[in-house]
Amino acid sequence: MINKVTFNIEELNNMKKYPKELFYIGNTKLLEKKKVSIIGTRRPNAYTKEFTHKLASKLSSLDICIVSGAAMGVDAISHFAAREDNTIAVVANGLDIRYPSVNKNLISNIEEKGLVLSAYKEGEKARNYTFVLRNEIVVALGDILIVTQADLKSGSLTSVNYALKMGKKVYTLPHRINESLGTQDLVKKGLIEPIYDIDEFIQQFTNTSQVTKIKDKVLDFCDTNPSYEEAISKFGDTILEYELEGKIKIENARVSII
């Protein structure tokens, strides 16, 4: 069901102009969480795909909500890695339209388990100007912005400008020469920071006590000897990290504490 937002979303006060109207489908309690916005190119390379997924998954495992724009590429990877129940998708069209069509199942799942927001009434199709407002809302909702890959003249760079004007920190992945030239240029100018170590970055960003609490939950869950599939579904890549750290073992498709 499409609902109209009847309350003030505090983070959106950072925008140049608060949206005239906002509509939603889903769980508005996600707006109360700590949030990170992740965006980037619609055509990410294999490296960007891998580390966008890791970033979104690890942040989500610490109960940080991932915000993005439901587009192909980096946006879709971010929503999927966060899991549909811990992500906010901001779209550039009316909520009766699931655009782009390639992501219609993803968007439908977010409607059911997460939250989809729009500044546009039913029937409004996505156009150049609607993407501009969509991007500003995505940036405003997050405590920080991560642009994992963007070329020169990319629309993602407009989002970086929004973030900097709002006083938000902006991060990116370090790329090879001649890749993601848009973000590399901004790193060179000292406007955004590269993430060289994902775990170190997340530790700095998150509250230490919160990290400890989540990690205890992981071990408590693994102590029940769950199936590998259940553990991965609940905690994602954290299970693989714990196995590598020697905290748990996986045998016969079940997980247990060492």
Results as ranks from 00 to 15, higher is better:
Met72Asp: 10
Asp85Ala: 10
His175Thr: 00
Ser154Pro: 01
Lys153Val: 00
Arg134Gln: 11
Tyr228Leu: 15
Leu62Asp: 01
Ile137Arg: 04
Val74Glu: 05
Tyr228Phe: 15
Asn14Glu: 10
Leu115His: 09
Leu62Met: 07
Asp216Ala: 02
Ile39Asp: 03
Leu106Met: 14
Ser256Asn: 06
Ile9Phe: 03
Val160Glu: 03
Val187Gly: 11
Asp96Gln: 14
Tyr129Trp: 14
Ala140Ile: 05
Lys168Gln: 10
Asn105Trp: 13
Ile202Met: 02
Val91Asn: 10
Ala119Glu: 12
Arg127Tyr: 08
Gly182Glu: 07
Asn3Thr: 01
Ile202Phe: 01
Asp216His: 15
Lys217Glu: 15
Ile146Met: 13
Thr224Ile: 01
Arg134Val: 00
Leu31Pro: 11
Met15Ala: 07
Lys121Val: 00
Glu200Phe: 11
Ile66Tyr: 07
Val218Thr: 07
Leu240Tyr: 14
Lys215Pro: 00
Asp237His: 14
Ile232Ser: 10
Ser78Cys: 05
Ile177Thr: 11
Ala119Cys: 13
Leu186Gln: 04
Ser60Ile: 02
Ala119His: 04
Leu62Lys: 03
Ser256Trp: 05
Gln210His: 13
Asp85Arg: 14
Asn45His: 08
Phe205Pro: 08
Lys33Ser: 10
Lys20Ile: 04
Leu62Arg: 06
Asn105Tyr: 12
Leu173Thr: 03
Glu136Ile: 02
Asn27Tyr: 00
Ile214Glu: 08
Arg134Cys: 05
Gln204Glu: 12
Arg127Leu: 10
Leu115Ala: 09
Ile250Arg: 02
Asp237Phe: 13
Ala231Asp: 02
Ser57Asn: 15
Leu152Val: 12
Pro100Val: 07
Glu230Phe: 05
Tyr99Cys: 03
Ile25Glu: 09
Val36Gly: 12
Thr172Leu: 09
Thr208Phe: 11
Pro226Arg: 11
Glu245Thr: 07
Asn13Phe: 02
Glu111Asp: 14
Glu200Pro: 06
Glu243Lys: 15
Lys215Trp: 08
Val255Met: 10
Lys249Arg: 13
Ala231Arg: 06
Ala253Asn: 15
Leu145Cys: 05
Thr28Glu: 07
Ile250Asn: 12
Leu22Ala: 06
Thr183Arg: 01
Asn128Met: 12
Lys20Leu: 07
Ile39Met: 12
Gly26Asn: 01
Arg98Phe: 11
Lys34Ser: 06
